[in-house]
Structures are given as C-alpha cells and as structure tokens.
Design a protein around this nucleic acid. Structure first.
Length: 424
DNA sequence: TCTGGGGTCCTCCTGCAG
DNA sequence: TCTGCTGCAGGAGGACCC
C-alpha cells in the first residue's frame, strides 16, 4: 500500500505557522521577483485568484479583498519541508520525498493495518509537530494514491483529510469522479487528445485499448493506465544526485547587447558550477539558452539553445564559463530584445567515478582554486563573495522581494519574538 | 513598467556510417 | 563512384511535474 502525503497550500501554510492572524484570511505567495502567484490559501482560491496570476495585474484586487501577499521565502519553506519529511520518515523507512511538499510512503507486510486510523495518526503528528496541515491518500499504486489524496483534500468534512482506496468499488467510484485532466501525468496536450475521442474521466481512460494508449501516449501513458487499474508499475524512487543542474532567470529589463547577456550567462554558469561542486559532481555538457519576451508578441520572437561539450568532465567554474560563453556566441543575434537566459549542466558524474582521458588531464590547479573559492564564499557569503572576471563588479541584480517574511527557522536574528509583558 | 524556476523523461529531427 | 535505405546516436524541443 502506498500513501501520498501532501501539505495543503504549503507555502501559504508556512506563512501562517508563524503568523496565526493569517488563519481564515486570503493569503498568496509570489514567485521569484514577485512575478506571479505560485501558492494560495483556500480563501484566496475561493475569491477567484488563479494560479499564475501576474501580481502587477492583480494588485488592485489584492487590496480590495484584503489579500495578504508574500514574496517567496525558500529558506523558510525548505526548512519546514525538512521537518515534515523527518516526521514522516518515522512512519515508514520506505519514503520517497517527491517534492518540497509531497512524499510517498510505502507500507508492506501487515494486511490488517487500519489505514484510515494510520492516516489520521500521521496527520495529527505533522500538525502537532510543524503546524502544517496535510492530506493523506492511501491506495495500492502511486497514481491511485494521488487520486485518493485529491479526494481527501476535496472533501475534508467527509474524509477528515484522509482517504483510502482499498476496494474495487471505491477504485471505480474514484476514477469516475476524477477528471482526465486531474490525473497525475496527464497534462494539457494529452487531455485535449483524450477529450477528442470522448475520454473525460479516469475511468473512461482505463477502458481504452492498451495498444492505442501506447501508440498515442507512449509508454508513460500506458504506465499511468496500469496504475489506475490497480497494477503497480511505478515504485518508490531513491533520491539520487541530480542529472542536470540549471540556473535560469528572467531579467528585470530586456537586454539587447551580447556584452549584457554575457555578464548574466557568466553569473548563471558560476552559480551552476557551485551547485555542481556541492553534489561532488563533474559535468561534460553545458547548454546555454536565450529567449525573448513571450508576453510582447509585437516584438520579434526568438529562442535558441545550444549544447557545448567539454573534452573532459569538469566542475571548474573557469571551464564552465568558457563553454557557456562559447555557446552564447553561437546563438546570439543582435536584433532581438532578450528577457530570459539560462545555463544547464548535464552528463553529470561523481567526481571519483570519472573515466580519465589519455589526452586531456584535469587541471589540478583549478581544483585547488575552486575549493579555496568555495571555502571563502562559504565563510563570507552574501555580497562579499569572490566573483569571476566577466561578472560585472557593478552587478547588483537582485530579486524583487518587497514582501519577504522573516526566515524564522534558519536565521538567529529573525527568530520569532514573544513579548511576555502582560497587560493588567 | 512589472507575467517564476528547476527538474525528468520522451519524441522528433538530423547527420553519419554501413 | 554514386544513390538510396536503414539504424543509431545525440541535440533540440516539448510535455509534464512541483
């Protein structure tokens, strides 16, 4: 039996934990750069704020309805997530942390387990331990556990935030209730395709011919179908080092010159290389992309990416910057207004597992230099970090975070204060 | 004026070798 | 030597997830 545990409106709930006055109030959390809405409390959903709403367009609405708006605070969310996951791990050693706010647990062996009771125990422990509300769905497969979780969340009064699919009758009823677009793994394009042939819910999807599904929706589609039928084909996945590492950003203003883009690309390459060294990895492919502003259709649109191979696996910022700049040169065209760019590292291996090449020897000096830079940056951090040539000294691009809450759990100076002065 | 970022996996296209 | 076919590999792009 699999359980899917999902934190309800996670980012908004994290904000509430440290400010209970926000309970029962509409709360939204904005993306990087205060761009668009990425999390909403139930109250915010019920007054019609959609996911992805551009903040600048919705600002009057927020004011009018007294919506509490927060910039994203990943230091806080990451730490709260770690606490939730640590508590979940006490229920089963078989845990897959699927995302910052979701985890699968697997329960094997005991056929007589009362999963409804177990679910409410998990709920109580997480709420008591972290203040974060969760929903729990149990089912024989991961995709069905997702469905069960959705039902638990949709009908909290009837389910108490826990739902178990453990009979054929319940499975069929749940599938008839689940809209095809809400099935885990079925996105917008596949939904359109399925609706065209009269498939509107998950039950209808399971009635399709296996061969048709495989031909038209690839092996991924067939796996989803099997899982919905109750046949488990997706197992818990172990957390492994990342296979690709990306640093991508939208710019505050549109850029037109190669020099400006080169400065950003150098910075993204530097950040990516730091992430790579943190997981003790080396990479051999560096992809660079640049794109124009898709929200300005009146301007000519352009998107290109290019992958540059390095002769030997490296984690040296110097090598990675060099390759990224070479890539940029290949794809840059002067006549466009650029809004976003990124650097993606792939073909990642562990440093110790690298196959040595007879003709290309890693520059040992780079390794010592990178370690020194990482140590210095770890010690000083912030604005006093060591920078590479190519990263402008005037580089002051900072995320707009006008409504940032304190990092209550990870910064000693931002810990919540309790005023014990009593009023008489 | 302001519209996110970071992943994985799969398919399609193209170039190359046999 | 040229042409056409086939299979393979790798890059680019897209779909999907949170």
């Amino acid at each position: 039996m699999y359980a899917l545990i999902d934190c309800n409106n996670f980012y908004a709930s994290c904000q509430r934990v440290f400010n209970p006055a926000l309970n029962h109030q509409p709360v939204v959390v904005l993306s990087n750069n205060d761009g668009c809405v990425i999390a909403r409390s139930n109250e915010a959903k019920s007054i019609g704020i959609p996911m992805g709403a551009p903040a600048f367009k919705w600002e009057p609405f927020f004011k009018q309805h007294g919506v509490h708006v927060f910039s994203c605070n990943f230091a806080l969310y990451g730490d709260m997530s770690r606490r939730v996951m640590n508590l979940l791990a006490t229920f089963s050693p078989d845990i897959e942390v699927y995302s910052i706010d979701e985890a699968f647990l697997e329960f094997t062996g005991n056929q007589n387990t009362d999963f409804l009771f177990l679910g409410s125990q998990i709920r109580t422990m997480i709420t008591r331990g972290t203040g974060i509300p969760i929903s729990v769905g149990f089912a024989p497969t991961k995709v069905l556990a997702k469905v069960a979780n959705k039902i638990a969340k949709k009908f909290p009064d009837r389910t108490g935030d826990v739902y178990v699919i453990d009979t054929e009758n319940k499975r069929e009823k749940a599938l008839r209730w689940t809209k095809i677009e809400d099935v885990w793994g079925i996105g917008r394009r596949e939904t359109k395709k399925l609706q065209k042939i009269g498939v509107f819910n998950a039950h209808q999807f399971t009635q399709l011919n296996d061969a048709w599904v495989k031909t038209n929706m690839s092996i991924t589609g067939l796996r989803i179908k099997k899982e919905l039928e109750g046949i488990s084909v997706l197992e818990l996945e172990e957390v492994e080092d990342k296979r690709s590492i990306a640093t991508t950003r939208s710019f505050d203003i549109m850029l037109t010159t190669e020099a400006e883009l080169e400065e950003r690309i150098t910075t993204y390459a530097t950040l990516s290389a730091e992430k790579l060294r943190r997981q003790q990895g080396v990479c051999q492919l560096i992809t660079v992309f640049i794109k124009t502003n898709r929200f300005k259709p009146e301007l000519p649109q352009y998107y290109r990416s290019v992958t540059v191979a390095i002769d030997f696996p490296t984690s040296s910022t110097i090598d990675i910057i060099k390759a990224a700049k070479k890539g940029l040169k290949e794809i840059f065209l002067p006549e466009f207004h650029y809004k976003k760019a990124g650097v993606i590292l792939s073909e990642i291996q562990e440093t110790d597992a690298v196959q040595l090449n007879l003709f290309h020897i890693r520059n040992a000096k780079h390794e010592v230099l990178m370690k020194t830079i990482d140590d210095v940056n770890k010690y000083w951090g912030g604005d006093r970090k060591v920078r590479f040539a190519g990263q402008s000294l005037n580089y002051v691009w900072k995320m707009r975070q006008e409504k940032l809450s304190p990092r209550y759990t990870t910064r000693i100076h931002e810990v919540i204060e309790i005023n014990l002065k009593s009023e008489k």
